[in-house]
Amino acid sequence: MSDDLRLVIFDVDGTLVDSQADILAAMDRAFAATDHPVPGRTDILSIVGLSLPEAFEHLLPDAAGPVRARMVDAYKDAYTELRAAGGVALSSPLYPGVRAMLDRLHGVPTTLLGVATGKSRRGLDKLLEGHDLRSLFVTRQCADDHPSKPHPAMLLEALAETGVPPHRAVMVGDTEFDMAMAASAGIPAIGVSWGYHRPERLSAAHAVIDHIDELPARLETIWESA
């Protein structure tokens, strides 16, 4: 491990990109496929960040496992169709200022970037390719390879891949699942207020920012105190 390197790990949906339109539409199709009433927008967005099996378990705790499995498949199919129809830039646009900030952080030789997301590997790859972001991230952790957030496995693997110690890493995300995952991994966390969980749900964060431009100063404050 090296104290010279620093690692910033980003959540994706609700942090880097606004994919809620396709998430809500895919959920509509998933619930219709099994003749269940569709939850409200707030309920659906409250589970963004979880892996799909865990998300449907939260939304339909009384449904049988095979029913939820069909909903997972229906959601994946619908999301793929929606992304193909609209293109990544339209279906999951980057939040304002995100690309410039990623480029800025990537330009610092001692700062490494990573992602930890509840997306599938296929979904993450399509999104990174669509926005030409793949080359920016040296570690990419997703739901196919790990237990769902808030289990710390994604972050622990990111640390192992990069050789960065926990106190030199920071998790940036928009949900309480991101904050809890970071705490379990011993990593400081920064919450963002523009995502899918209200700021008061991010109480475990070391700081909550309202615009991506605030990120560098918050990172330095965390690392200086480490």
Score class of each variant (00 low, 15 high):
25 A>W: 00
171 M>N: 14
96 P>L: 12
51 S>K: 06
73 D>T: 14
64 A>E: 15
206 H>A: 13
211 H>V: 11
9 I>C: 07
221 T>V: 12
79 Y>G: 11
89 A>E: 12
64 A>Q: 10
80 T>N: 07
96 P>Y: 10
48 V>L: 13
150 P>A: 11
220 E>T: 11
17 V>R: 00
216 P>M: 05
163 G>I: 01
36 H>L: 15
105 L>M: 04
196 Y>L: 09
87 G>W: 03
41 R>W: 00
167 H>R: 15
26 A>M: 02
197 H>N: 15
142 C>V: 13
224 E>C: 03
176 E>C: 13
30 A>L: 03
207 A>I: 02
159 L>K: 03
154 M>P: 05
203 S>V: 14
153 A>L: 10
204 A>T: 12
220 E>C: 01
34 T>S: 04
123 G>C: 08
99 R>E: 12
33 A>W: 00
36 H>Y: 06
51 S>E: 04
44 I>Q: 03
52 L>E: 06
141 Q>C: 07
203 S>G: 12
12 V>Y: 08
3 D>V: 03
226 A>K: 02
174 D>Y: 13
70 R>F: 00
196 Y>I: 04
116 A>Q: 11
197 H>E: 13
7 L>R: 06
197 H>R: 15
114 G>A: 08
68 R>M: 10
145 D>Y: 11
3 D>G: 01
34 T>R: 12
187 I>G: 12
1 M>L: 08
8 V>G: 07
159 L>N: 10
136 L>Y: 12
39 P>E: 13
64 A>H: 05
224 E>H: 07
48 V>M: 05
199 P>Q: 08
130 G>T: 10
69 A>Q: 12
182 A>H: 15
123 G>I: 09
214 E>F: 00
103 D>K: 08
190 I>G: 13
88 V>L: 07
28 D>K: 01
201 R>N: 14
80 T>E: 08
20 Q>H: 09
51 S>W: 00
177 F>I: 06
62 D>E: 14
17 V>I: 13
221 T>W: 02
69 A>R: 11
123 G>E: 00
165 P>S: 09
164 V>D: 10
17 V>M: 03
41 R>D: 08
179 M>Y: 11
118 G>R: 05
20 Q>M: 01
55 A>R: 01
118 G>T: 11
204 A>M: 15
188 P>C: 12
40 G>Y: 01
56 F>E: 07
188 P>G: 07
176 E>W: 13
94 L>A: 05
137 F>K: 09
90 L>G: 03
160 A>Y: 10
59 L>F: 01
202 L>A: 13
15 T>R: 03
106 H>V: 05
154 M>V: 06
164 V>W: 09
67 V>L: 14
86 G>S: 02
64 A>G: 04
147 P>Q: 00
175 T>C: 12
70 R>K: 05
150 P>W: 11
41 R>N: 05
207 A>T: 09
130 G>D: 07
